[in-house]
Design a protein around this nucleic acid. Structure first.
Lengths: 174, 174
DNA sequence: CGGCGTGGTTCGGTGAACGAACCGAGCAAC
DNA sequence: GTTGCTCGGTTCGTTCACCGAACCACGCCG
């Protein structure tokens, strides 16, 4: 959300949350993490964000405990959602659904499918099959009727295919 | 959230939503509107925000169709949530609950009570009494066990008393 | 050992947020 | 009828974050 991350005067849990996720790009970074993007280069390519800002956002998120930075090979790092980070899914989902309802005139761009039921969850996040509110680990993302084909970078192409949330994507390899 | 409101490269409903509510202060302004704050002066006093920035945020929210600006007396205006604005409640609630869970070590600061059942809704927004997910018009806000007494401006005092969401508060009069 | 991919850092410029001051329309009391 | 108050702003100069572009170090690969 915002830049200046300081809402010190506000004694409110919303303000505390926004201090961690309120800055520009932060929620889009987390969205990509939910969608399976894990590597600095992939995030940078997919978000069209300055490297300096991405570095700062990732460092902030790691410091806040929402992401974990892991060396998966000497000199190579990946960023994984922690439990705190995964707990943001309802907020991310609610914002996505608001955008789908009011800012997607041609219909939804993406659908979220409860993996164990095969049913598309409704805008409140409930599965019409079993009535549960599945977490990200039980959801698949599928292109919706108004899915976009505008971006053609490698990350966007891979993300366009149906896949389980949180599962790592691999734009480079197979 | 962020300042620069342009996520043009992102073809995603989350990015579209953040273009309207992603700037700094915007979600806190909407929170106050849900809590019943309607007037420029009350928002400014409660948020400790620069008048210039508040003017800009309110104008943006009106232009985006989330707030409506109404003259309730010659020269005096109030800001009301539109349907689009009220539809953001699940997102605001989800962020508040995340903050309550991970950034409120002494317990919840506020409780949301389903007005028709009298039961406190759970972190998913469901009423344990009837199972429904009440909207803001059916919720009351009550101070929680870790409610703060730090702020003592007139708006904070009035907001601290239990009241129905969306109902206008009146710090000046009775 | 030369080139490439990854994961950054550095730098100068732009623009937003900030606090403080100023402003004008209504209203109310004196 | 003018002084003073409140409401709802606007203006101004400073500070600070974001931005794109360039640079850089490490490890691997042929």
């Amino acid at each position: 959300m915002a830049l200046g991350k300081d809402y010190a005067g506000q004694d409110c849990s919303l303000a505390r949350a926004l201090e961690d996720v309120g800055e520009r790009w932060t929620l889009l970074v987390l969205r990509d993490c939910f969608f399976g993007v894990r590597r600095f280069t992939d995030l940078q390519a997919h978000l069209d964000i300055s490297r300096a800002v991405l570095t700062a956002r990732l460092a902030d998120l790691v410091a806040a405990g929402l992401l974990e930075r892991r060396e998966y090979r000497p000199g190579r790092h990946e960023y994984l959602l922690t439990e705190q980070g995964r707990a943001l899914w309802p907020a991310v989902f609610a914002l996505v659904q608001w955008g789908e309802r009011f800012r997607a005139p041609n219909g939804p761009r993406r659908l979220f499918v409860h993996a164990t039921c095969g049913a598309t969850v409704d805008p409140t996040g409930a599965c019409p099959g079993c009535g549960a509110h599945p977490g990200p680990e039980d959801l698949e993302i599928h292109p919706g009727p108004a899915a976009s084909t505008r971006r053609d970078d490698a990350v966007s192409l891979v993300l366009r295919a149906p896949h389980r949330l949180l599962e790592p994507i691999t734009p480079g390899a197979g």
